[in-house]
């Protein structure tokens, strides 16, 4: 979180409201405002953003979907992971204006208290977190990762990348989840939760 502009933008926009002109410039300069339409968790959402707005900030500050977390804001920690067209990506390293017509799913879209997604339930069951800050990103990443494995994608842990068969060992899970950092180091339980879903349900 070493980007003062981004921090200032977050504070300004939540104080003044999401659609305030120049809410994110912080410098009063002339900025382009883009009216965009995003599909988030099966809902069409219209918003007006400065082109600089990351998808992460659009979700959190404009759409009030604060389940997606801002950790490093530089693609290093994975806390901001969401699913775009079924694929896991870091929402901090992409612009909201680049994702019109894409299907975005956040942790709120996977499930909630009234109906947990199996991966959410597995994290609860396996105690796959302590402070919980990285957890939404871990869960979205895990869901995306299992889809990749089901599609037969190899990883750096795969001995023979040419082999069409992938066996999702713990080593494979750890390698494939290396883009999600857990400062509490709940890794053994995160791996257990993911392994349980990988083995248990064909989804």
């Amino acid at each position: 979180m070493n980007d003062s502009d981004t921090i200032a933008a977050g504070v300004t926009s939540s104080d003044l409201g999401a659609t305030s002109p120049n809410a994110e410039s912080g410098q009063g300069e002339m900025t382009q405002r883009s009216a965009i339409t995003l599909s988030v968790n099966d809902q069409v959402r219209r918003l007006e953003v400065d082109p600089r707005t990351s998808l992460l900030d659009a979700l959190r500050e404009h759409l009030r979907l604060s389940g997606t977390k801002k950790g490093c804001d530089h693609g290093q920690c994975g806390a901001c992971t969401v699913l775009i067209n079924g694929r896991r990506v870091n929402s901090c390293l992409t612009l909201a204006v680049m994702h019109e017509d894409d299907e975005i799913v956040t942790i709120e879209g996977l499930g909630g208290p009234d109906g947990l997604h199996p991966m959410q339930a597995a994290f609860v069951e396996c105690d796959g977190f302590q402070c919980g800050y990285c957890t939404p990103g871990q869960i979205c990443s895990a869901v995306g990762m299992l889809a990749e494995a089901r599609a037969g994608w190899p990883s750096h842990a795969t001995a023979d990348v040419a082999s069409p068969r992938i066996e999702l060992t713990d080593e494979e899970i750890r390698e494939r989840m290396s883009g999600n950092i857990c400062r509490c180091a709940a890794y053994p339980n995160i791996v257990a939760a993911i392994r349980g879903i990988a083995e248990g349900s064909p989804e």
């Binding site: 990506v89 390293l93 995306g144 990749e148 494939r176």
Partner: peptide
């Protein structure tokens, strides 16, 4: 390719 970055970054 698989030795670089993370799953999320490689998707983007």
């Amino acid at each position: 390719l698989l030795s670089g970055a993370s799953g999320q970054l490689r998707n983007k």
